[in-house]
């Protein structure tokens, strides 16, 4: 379901010495089924922004519409919003608390007061989706490896069957293999369920590989919003914000400067095809 942010502003500790304008006039339309990347350096406002999407933080100005309804209306249920916009925080394994994997994943759907059968179905579906094998269902979540814990925690949010899934740096601290596994699974879930996914990431290589739309935040406002190719063509401006483009983007720029007839690229695959095309012409 679509989310519309209309002139959203957020200021914390207003009127004190600690006042900070964390979000400045954010206007965004997030339609159904998009895979969106959200980038920005630490403190750019991206974490604040995603907590607005499920109502954990209330904007100090502007409006947010979920599926056409103003989420700040008195009769709009915040609790329901939180199940529809699933938010996976950074290091989500820190929220695990139950004695078994299954019980932990059940927490979300149980809070939704769903019938027992539905709770179970959603739980098993979610655990399966994140690739946790059956012999671990009754294991204590605290005995799992770092990557497994993280996936169980993500399943805990997936089990609520959110229409929008927001993940704050889901791969932080994982090794390359763990990172690829989680991102591949998220991409598969996005396709399978047709849900909207918003991926907050520090890795330009990762967002370039997976997302179709990229939003760049800096100093509390949206600086760029477009396809990864469009956004990364502003690599010089991104650098000024303390960000960068994927390494292959720089490769292509260098080659162009050398007079080689190649186009832009944001992934290794694209770069390879571009260079081979140019090379074969010679």
């Amino acid at each position: 379901m679509s989310i519309v942010l209309d002139h959203v502003n957020y200021t914390y500790s207003a009127g004190t010495a600690y006042e900070k304008h964390a979000l400045k006039d954010i206007n965004l339309v997030i339609p159904d089924g998009q895979f969106i990347g959200l980038i920005g350096h630490t403190g750019s406002g991206k974490s604040t922004l995603i907590q607005h999407l499920n109502g954990l933080i209330k904007a100090t100005g502007g409006a947010i519409y979920y599926d056409g309804h103003d989420i700040y209306d008195d009769d709009f249920s915040k609790k329901e919003l939180r199940t529809k916009v699933g938010l996976v925080f950074q290091y989500p394994e820190h929220q695990l608390f139950e004695t078994t994997v299954v019980k932990d994943v059940e927490f979300g759907p149980k809070n939704m007061k769903l019938p027992q059968l539905e709770v179970q179905m959603r739980t098993f579906e979610a655990i399966k989706m994140v690739g946790i094998s059956e012999e671990l269902y009754d294991a204590s979540p605290f005995e799992l490896s770092g990557g497994q814990k993280r996936r169980v925690a993500i399943a805990g949010v997936l089990a609520m069957k959110p229409e929008v899934l927001v993940l704050d740096e889901p791969t932080a601290g994982l090794d390359p293999m763990g990172r690829d596994e989680i991102l591949d699974q998220i991409a598969a879930i996005q396709k399978e369920r047709g849900i909207t996914v918003i991926l907050v990431s520090h890795s330009m290589e990762d967002v370039a590989k997976y997302v179709e739309r990229l939003i760049v935040m800096d100093h509390g406002s949206v600086q760029y919003d477009g396809t990864p190719k469009e956004v990364f063509s502003h690599y010089k401006e991104l650098e000024a914000m303390g960000l960068a483009a994927p390494q292959v983007t720089y490769v292509m720029e260098n080659l162009k400067a050398q007079g080689m007839n190649v186009g832009d690229a944001t992934t290794v695959e694209e770069a390879k095809n571009e260079i081979l095309r140019a090379w074969k012409k010679i």
């Binding site: 994927p246 390494q247 290794v268 390879k272 090379w279």
Partner: peptide, 20 residues
């Protein structure tokens, strides 16, 4: 060994495989 290489290294390797 479940490790990465930098993008540019991977690109060079891919291109080499393709005959460059």
């Amino acid at each position: 060994y479940r490790l990465d290489v930098p993008q540019v290294t991977e690109l060079a390797w891919e291109l080499k495989k393709a005959g460059m």
